[in-house]
Design a protein around this nucleic acid. Structure first.
Lengths: 336, 336
DNA sequence: CTGTTAGCGCCTTCAT
DNA sequence: ATGAAGGCGCTAACAG
């Protein structure tokens, strides 16, 4: 039986023998948490370990230490660029704190969400970051009941520690921008009702309209998913029932879908139709007509999510970071 | 010291005591690899384990078994949809075979490629799938020298076990399609010279042109990166120096960049300019003008990569799967 | 089929 | 500062 990718598997004992000291000495010298000793033995041991190509066996170490230096991340899918951005940011934040991030995808299915969680737990993660929390999801509550360290990223259930963007503010910035450009007939396409982000962004949008003395009719708001196809469909609905001069899509994917719907309806984005997205995925600024959107600082959100994992419980545990508007060619002054 | 996400940590011993049997009995009954015994004790043990909420500690188990049921995947970045698609497919393929896939991102830096590899090995992965192999990269050779199980996905170095699409065929299909539509003035934008995929696709393109009696002048081929920005730049270069009626971009991101460059140059894709991409990322079919592209069967590639990991060495180890052309609105018959 | 025994590689008292 | 010894949770030989 070959052991773990057939790697040379140089053990502590090998190093100890080669260096002529005991295993415990080597263990101590190579303990990355302790301050680096500069004693003669320490230096020699490190050199020998290096020559032999020693690598600590994370499993044995984790077993003994009771923690593994691993953080589990749960996302619905990685092919959604927003989730990929979030995971990469979490990976960086984790690494900066000496942790390794592993990810599991779980789609939109609560059942697979549970089973993916169990898989991660089985692998002994020291904490769990969920980028999936639905408002109606009972997973965070279950984790709280079991006393499992976790935090929510991008969304919140109002109870578990959460790190997210200020969606209300983002929605406000987006629509305020449209209002400032003279638009008064604005439609809104947002995410699913079960997502706190979708609701927050609509709230902010409503506030900006109210400030301008505009009401937000119910039929002006379309709740959809966060995918491109949902954007196409929502856009189609919007453009057949009315003729808004501007659309706020609460997600860049949705906005891209709306772009396609607009194209099919004979509307020209950046000309007779203004469009704002949300998230500022890399694609947004590189479209033929670059998309005005709300930039979300994923790195800050990630840092918050990781920090909350290890923060003493009972602190103010819902952290919001401010988004920024990125005006681009997809929004223009309203034509009379 | 709390152990691993504070989970209840019900151990084999707990189950054994509660069920009134020995630890090894429980271990055997709960061994997922053995055939499921239906004896009275087995049934009872499973029930008790279930009630207590027992979960196997993957670290202890891996330590003892000498393998961890984990496969490491190395990709440059997950924010590139192609890589996200590839990883998700690998994740599925791994899961179908009882493995769990963990991913590490390493950018384009060979140094960080090395260190990410070490991190994965430290975590005791049973094998490594690299979706990063550059032609000039020495990592596969290093892994071979150390006897570490691995395979390459999407690219090949010509030696290590590889699972990839038939890039030559894909390039051929793309350009053949353009030729069939009457185009004779075709420019090609491809990926970096260090990628086997980029070269293969150009070769196929060249073959299709030759068949039609057309030569491929060197200045008709632009080597770029695989990012959108590189596509914009390459497109700009193409459109300022000449006026091709069609462009084959060897990657959808590149194609999107070319779209933007075309827009800036006053060309209209699907009208006076035909454009073909490569990979068929989900976005391609959902653009305002849907992109004709070459569909790559990521699931087959993933299955191949995982299988090669555990195949007896010495087999035919470079597996290629056939891509398919997806004709869409971005390509039209040439206008005279 | 069951239980006993030994040990995977590492870390951490405890004694020197 | 160093070494010896025990054990983390689990599995594989070996008896019965």
């Amino acid at each position: 039986m070959d052991t773990m990718a057939d790697r040379g598997s140089v053990t502590l004992r090998d190093v100890a023998e080669a260096a002529g000291v005991s295993v415990s000495t080597v263990s101590r010298v190579l303990d990355e948490r302790a301050p680096r000793s500069q004693s003669a033995t320490a230096v020699r041991v490190r050199q020998v370990a290096d020559e032999l190509g020693y690598r600590r066996n994370a499993y044995a170490s984790g077993l003994r230490r009771g923690q593994t230096g691993t953080i589990g991340v749960l996302v619905p899918r990685l092919t959604d660029t927003v989730m990929a951005l979030m995971f990469e940011a979490l990976e960086r934040a984790a690494r900066a704190r000496g942790y390794f991030a592993v990810v599991a995808t779980c789609g939109d299915d609560p059942e697979s969400e549970r089973s993916s969680t169990e898989i991660l737990l089985e692998r002994g993660v020291d904490g769990l970051v969920l980028a999936t929390a639905r408002l109606d999801d009972e997973l965070p509550a279950a984790l709280r009941a079991r006393g499992i360290r976790h935090s929510l990223a991008l969304r919140t259930d109002g109870v578990s520690p959460s790190s997210l963007g200020d969606d209300d503010m983002g929605g406000y910035l987006a629509v305020r921008h449209l209002v400032d450009l003279g638009h008064r007939d604005i439609a809104i396409v947002t995410g699913p009702r079960f997502a706190s982000s979708a609701n927050g962004r609509v709230e902010g949008a409503r506030r900006a309209l109210a400030e301008a003395g505009l009401a937000l009719d119910a039929e002006r708001v379309v709740y959809a998913g966060y995918g491109i196809d949902e954007g196409v469909e929502a856009g189609r609905a919007v453009f057949t029932s009315s003729r808004p001069t501007a659309v706020f899509a609460a997600n860049d994917n949705l906005a891209i879908g709306v772009m396609r719907a607009a194209h099919l309806a004979g509307r020209v984005v950046g000309d007779d139709l203004s469009l704002v997205g949300y998230n500022d995925i890399p694609l947004a600024s590189r479209l033929p007509v670059p998309l005005t959107t709300v930039h979300v600082p994923f790195d800050q959100i990630a840092a918050g999510a990781i920090d909350l994992l290890f923060a003493p419980p009972g602190e103010a545990t819902i952290r919001k970071v401010l988004p920024t508007l990125m005006p681009r060619a997809s929004t223009t002054r309203v034509v009379e």
